[in-house]
Design a binder for these strands. Structure first.
Lengths: 228, 228
DNA sequence: CAGGCTACGTGTACGGCGTACACTTGTCAA
DNA sequence: TTGACAAGTGTACGCCGTACACGTAGCCTG
């Protein structure tokens, strides 16, 4: 029947770059970036893998597009405060976006070329520092020094202590004290410290802001010295 | 002939974890980490892929072992100076090791669990701060704040401007000035600045040390405040 | 010296990946 | 009606990591 086939074809709404990216982001949020393959995304959309290639060059472009979605969630820059507050808040907004999409920082690290969206974000970040009175040279160094922190993340070397905690039995615990006495000592102190908070482990937000403020304060001093 | 086969079998010296790791590191140094597959490493050693699995659990362990090789190249901690000098020099030594093996930082970012070797390195790093008079709490924050910088690297968002430079034609250049005026301005200033150095682009070492000192100075201040 | 155990290297095979390329099909303008 | 064009399909290729069964050579014990 003509009508039915027409109905069916209009019922299944057509693919588009946006629909693909949304599905991919949702999949990565739900099952992690390791589960994200062209084939899997296609399956999620009820479509054959090669169909994606009508809207995307390749997987690289898919990943880039997904990052653009995340970057798009970062708040715009405030213009009604001093540079430090504005930068600080924006970076925390970026961090919040990355926390909603935990795969994003890892994908970002992997890529070599930034997308136009990311470039735009960097551009507006530069603008914030320049508007705050930073010289071109200092701003340049700042951008390097801040690095990925501008995007709201910093790579921790062992990021997963919250995971290892509960299953750590007494045996490995004491073994650790012999092999890595300093780490053990730190670990012990932190566990005690945070007894009031839910469970042991570090307060990630505090640690991030500690490091962020360390940098911002240092930059402030550099700027003041430069202008003096 | 018995003798010949005996000779042959002794001529081809047996595989070992060390030989495999060395071959893998050499391969990654030469052709990049993307070219590194179990099959490729095996081929490099004139052996069938599955042979590697007699000495290694899986590819994860191969990567971990490769990182251990790199970490093993980092100088030991000096004990004859103040904490800041000692930490600074050691981190720069780590950076030098990573520059010799450009794939290493990316591999490190990828992994979740640190190897015992890396744990040992972290332990000794903690020791340096503690010996320098940092409290346990502050040391803890320091470790988080320093993050991957402790291992001698920091992730830059667009790490490859030196590559894009030469082939950038006038057209894209002016297009950039319209789309990303602030990046353009920065770029222009930097290019001018470094005319004395060989070619344009940034002095990576300077940028790394700028950020490192920014952190170390900030930490110094924290420590002094704490002790006051 | 015989026999078997063990450590090490081999061969084959499986399921998954990204994606090239040739094909159908559905839509709409001329 | 037709025929061009865009969107989705199907098949296939060459990679990947690695499970598993199989030799085989060397040593240890009887």
């Amino acid at each position: 029947m003509k009508t039915e086939s027409t109905v069916r074809s209009t019922t299944r709404e057509p693919l588009s770059r946006e629909r693909i990216l949304a599905a991919a982001v949702a999949l990565a949020d739900r099952e992690g970036v390791d589960a994200l393959s062209m084939r899997r995304v296609a399956q999620e959309l009820g479509v054959v893998p090669m169909a994606l290639y009508k809207h995307l060059e390749n997987k690289e472009e898919l990943l880039g597009g997904m990052l653009d979605v995340v970057v798009g969630e970062i708040d715009a820059a405030r213009t009604d405060t001093d540079w430090k507050t504005a930068v600080r808040e924006r970076i925390l907004s970026a961090r919040a976006a990355l926390l909603r999409h935990p795969w994003a920082s890892r994908v970002m690290e992997t890529r070599t070329e930034p997308t136009p969206t990311v470039m735009g974000y960097m551009d507006s970040m530069i603008e914030m520092f320049r508007a705050g009175g930073f010289s071109i040279d200092l701003t340049h160094h700042v951008m390097h020094a801040m690095g990925s922190r501008l995007m709201g993340f910093s790579q921790e070397l062992f990021n997963d202590q919250s995971d290892a905690d509960p299953q750590m039995d007494a045996e490995t615990f004491t073994a650790m004290s012999a092999t890595y006495p300093r780490i053990y000592e730190l670990f012990l102190a932190v566990s005690h410290d945070e007894a009031s908070v839910v469970g042991p482990g570090c307060d990630d937000r505090f640690e991030f802001e500690f490091a962020l403020d360390l940098m911002l304060d240092g930059l402030q001093r550099h700027k003041d010295r430069e202008q003096a």
